Amino acid sequence: MSKIKYPPEFLRRLKGVAAKRPRIVIEHILQHGQITTQELKEIYGYNHPPRAIRDVREQGIPIVMFRVTGTDGRKIAAYRFGLPSEVRTTRLSGRTAFSSNLKKVLAEKYGSRCNIYLEPFPVQELQIDHRIPFEIAGENKGNFSEDITDYMLLCASANRAKSWSCENCPNWRVRDTSACKSCYWDHPESYTHIAMRDIRRLDLLWSGEETAQYDLLVEEATKIQKKAPEYVKNVLRNHFKQKNNPREI
């Protein structure tokens, strides 16, 4: 792959980034034209690649995501520089590490559970996240808000899913915080859209002895050549029909 020629001013801005993690990402993209989540994990040891990409964005550098095929044949995320004209004239102040006390307060308020999957997790496995992405609200609210309702506890899987969805949301560039407040990723208990799309989502987890029920569900779905989610929808649809629900299902 031939190296992309960037405007001198853009290159000067890139070379002016001194922080280690964003510097590594920038140098890799300069050399290879892109960087994948697989490379961030396997080469540089970053277990949560979106965080490394956010570090670059917080320096004011535009980054866009696209899909490529990983070494195992699955589609994975890859990142490259956005338009040089979209460089921020001032960088975000960046994240300061959350205090352990904040996690304790959140766990006391919401319980030791993932706020997206609504399932219990050991508190040490939960991560603090801004309800409204830092990249959207950060410039207005600074590193920290004193209102703990601005934060949520997420398991690693939910945090990755939220990061991917938010980064691909049309509002990522518009930065309308009011749109975020009515989104599933901000308040999964009450929302009107998911990343600006008119869809609804229900995340279900089976753990411990419940996994036997899940295995049975998959077995029954396979018998009628259905995937598990489609099978669950059919069960619910039939349930509402039997209840003579006047609403169209």
Rank of each mutant, 00 (worst) to 15 (best):
R237T: 15
K223M: 12
P122H: 11
L153E: 04
Y231Q: 14
E39H: 04
M1N: 12
E42T: 13
A179H: 11
A212N: 10
K3P: 02
D150P: 02
R247N: 13
Y110E: 05
P246Q: 05
E219Q: 14
T211Y: 02
V56T: 00
Q242C: 13
I224P: 11
N245I: 14
Y117Q: 10
T69V: 09
Q59F: 04
G33T: 02
E86T: 08
K109V: 11
A77C: 05
F240L: 15
A179D: 04
K181R: 08
P50H: 03
A156D: 15
Q213F: 12
I249S: 05
I26L: 03
E167W: 10
P8A: 00
E125M: 12
R237E: 15
Q213I: 05
A212R: 11
W164V: 13
V56C: 05
A19F: 08
E220F: 09
Q225N: 15
E210M: 09
P229A: 05
W164N: 14
N140G: 10
S112Y: 03
K3L: 15
K20V: 07
L83C: 12
I43P: 08
I35E: 01
V25H: 00
K181N: 08
F134V: 07
S207C: 08
H32S: 05
F121W: 11
I148M: 12
L118M: 13
I61Q: 02
K15V: 00
K241F: 15
T149A: 10
G33P: 05
M152E: 12
S2L: 14
Q124W: 11
Y46D: 03
T211F: 09
T37F: 04
Q38H: 05
L202H: 11
E167F: 14
I53K: 02
R175Q: 08
L153W: 04
N245D: 15
T89R: 12
P62L: 02
I26Q: 06
E119V: 15
R67P: 00
D72V: 03
G82F: 01
G111N: 03
Q124N: 10
P50I: 03
R113A: 04
F240N: 00
Y79W: 10
A221D: 10
N143L: 09
L236I: 14
E139L: 01
T177W: 02
S145Q: 11
F81C: 00
A19T: 06
P50L: 08
H48G: 01
C114N: 06
F10S: 03
G138F: 07
S178H: 03
L106G: 06
F134H: 06
I4E: 13
S100Q: 13
Y191P: 01
A158N: 04
A161G: 11
P188S: 03
Y6C: 09
E9P: 01
L106K: 03
G60S: 07
E9S: 12
S182D: 09
T37Y: 08
A161S: 13
A18D: 07
M65F: 02
K5T: 10
N159Q: 14
Y117P: 02
A107R: 01
S178Q: 07
A158S: 14
L154V: 04
I63D: 02
F240I: 10
I61T: 06
I63H: 00
I4M: 12
L106A: 04
